[in-house]
Design a protein around this nucleic acid. Sequence first.
DNA 1: CGAAGATAGTTATAGAGTATAACAATTGCC
DNA 2: GGCAATTGTTATACTCTATAACTATCTTCG
Lengths: 158, 158
Amino acid sequence: MPDDAAKPVKRTHVSDATLRRLVGYNLKRAFLVIGADLARTLEPYELRMLTYTALTLVADNPGLSQSQLADAMQVERPNLVVIVDELETRGLITRDRVPTDRRTYALQITDEGAQLLAEATRAVGEHENQMMGGLTKAEEAALISTLNRIETSGTGRS
Amino acid sequence: MPDDAAKPVKRTHVSDATLRRLVGYNLKRAFLVIGADLARTLEPYELRMLTYTALTLVADNPGLSQSQLADAMQVERPNLVVIVDELETRGLITRDRVPTDRRTYALQITDEGAQLLAEATRAVGEHENQMMGGLTKAEEAALISTLNRIETSGTGRS
DNA sequence: CGAAGATAGTTATAGAGTATAACAATTGCC
DNA sequence: GGCAATTGTTATACTCTATAACTATCTTCG
């Protein structure tokens, strides 16, 4: 869908109407807005999206291994190492050696980590309420359901 | 929502139920799937998401400036330079000097660029059909509408 | 007119996020 | 016991993103 003729027009408005037809484009644009706001939300806790996600998963799945965490986060194992390093250095999680398999670490959240996570999670809840403020609960549920279907069916591709 | 007690359990399944309540998390997961498939889709044309987006916007808005394009793409001007460089080097767009304002370039798609874009756009259409295959047209429209509302209302924040 | 400030494009640079190969230590499988 | 697979790690590289600083040009206005 081109616009008008051509060259020296000093365009006043840029149309993205073609791209707007693509779900992926709208998805990215919405995620950009949410992600930027989430980053601001997590900043006071010195957490990023990835470290917040990791901390939550460790809290909810105590004792999981780094490989399991990397798999759950869709992150390559080498990249997870630095995330776990950071959380461990800050005293938010521990790497416990597992006697039955001395290759793996069992990740555990610390009391300090749990407290920080609780505070951050409260802030993230407010962030979500702000971002989704214009939606009804039904719309939000429908949105999540649709996103999950895209994710699930799309995952099973070559 | 923690799971079971604690340490040496050799966990069999990792739960992300807490994060699943967040729209942002589901959004990111779905976008990861779509983005990866889109990258595969664009690979034969040697385009990435950013260069495909730029090419489409130039095609639809002939004569726009780099600043306008950067603004439309939510990309900082310095980062757009390399994108435009790449498209120009490949002969897909031109940077025409504008006589009325010699600071700006008027970006135009070339015939070669238009042909490549047409092929890539066909592939992207198939990619979208695959990704959204499980959705009805109404569901897809509702999804886009909801995403746009999140993007619009979320953009107006501090 | 002419200086001051704003804008367009650019360079350099740095930081996240992501991806792969290769390695040591350990485990599991014949 | 030996070989393949797995866990965590290091090194590395590429993409995307973000900021500061610079040049050239335009705009504003005294």
